[in-house]
Simulated assay, not measured.
Amino acid sequence: MQHWITNIMTSLSYWGIGLLMFAENLFPPIPSELIMPLAGFTVAQNKMSFVPAVLAGVIGTILGAFPWYYAGKLVGEERLKGLADKYGKWITVSSQDIDKAQRWFARYGNKAVFFGRLVPGVRTLISLPAGMSNMPLAPFILYSTLGTTLWVMILTFLGYVLGDNYTLVDEYLAPVSKIVLVALIVAFIVWVVRKRQKAKRRRPN
């Protein structure tokens, strides 16, 4: 993976950064934690400039967020609620639960998108509920750009500072992505179990 990323960035320069960050949003196994630190290392070698490298990473990321955003819109709230009412009994998720989730995202959506862009394992996925909740495109782009810019700048700066050891960023952050993903799965399972327990207590004996 590292060799492949290095070859693309070496041959395409800033275009390579944008292309890789775009692909990273569509195929999460391609890690931004390796792409942007490598860009920072390249900046340290005076082969690139910091601001254009960050700009290329941000543009690639935002463009890569659109497919997930529009996928969420395609699924849509009504279709999702219909699926929940039809199949949700298996995990005790109803259209009312989706309504609650949508109200939560409507209230905290801007913050969720901004901070979601800073969390490994969530960065890509946050575009999906944004689209499903019909978050307006302008604030989605704004808060995605703000969060992404901060994230990309941090990674690029770390690569610049670490130099030859830029791969340490991915080594330390990759486990965080896995932990976050596992935590989300566990949280979902706990939520389902609690809902089932509540449903059992409500049933008449």
Rank of each mutant, 00 (worst) to 15 (best):
P120Q: 01
R103E: 13
F115E: 02
G82H: 05
R103H: 13
Y70V: 05
V75I: 15
F188H: 04
Q102M: 04
H3L: 07
L181A: 15
L181K: 12
A187N: 09
D85H: 04
L34Y: 11
A53G: 07
P175V: 11
V161M: 13
A44E: 13
P31N: 10
A138H: 02
A138L: 13
Q2F: 08
I179P: 03
I98S: 06
Y70F: 15
K86V: 03
S13T: 12
P29R: 04
T61Q: 11
G109L: 04
Q96A: 09
R203C: 02
L168G: 05
L38N: 02
I5E: 05
V161C: 09
V176L: 10
V193Y: 00
V186I: 09
E171P: 01
M153A: 15
Y160T: 10
E77Q: 14
S32Y: 10
A174N: 08
T149N: 06
R123I: 03
A130W: 01
R79E: 03
T156Q: 01
I91N: 05
P175T: 12
L74D: 03
K89F: 07
L118Y: 01
K81M: 14
Q197Y: 05
L19Y: 12
I179F: 07
G57R: 10
E171H: 12
D97N: 14
L26H: 00
W90V: 10
L63W: 03
W4E: 08
T42S: 15
L125K: 02
F41Y: 15
I17H: 07
A138G: 03
A199W: 03
S32Q: 12
E77A: 10
L20D: 11
N7W: 05
G18I: 11
V93K: 02
M21I: 11
P139F: 07
L173S: 01
Y14G: 05
M9D: 06
Y14A: 05
S13M: 08
N134M: 07
K111Y: 09
N110D: 14
A23D: 11
K111C: 03
I185C: 04
G159P: 08
P120K: 04
E171N: 13
L80T: 13
A23W: 06
K89G: 11
P204S: 06
F66G: 07
P175C: 11
R79M: 00
L83K: 12
M135E: 04
W191E: 11
K73V: 03
N110W: 05
S13N: 15
T92E: 13
I185R: 02
S133D: 01
A56Q: 07
A101D: 13
D164A: 14
L162H: 11
T42K: 15
T92L: 13
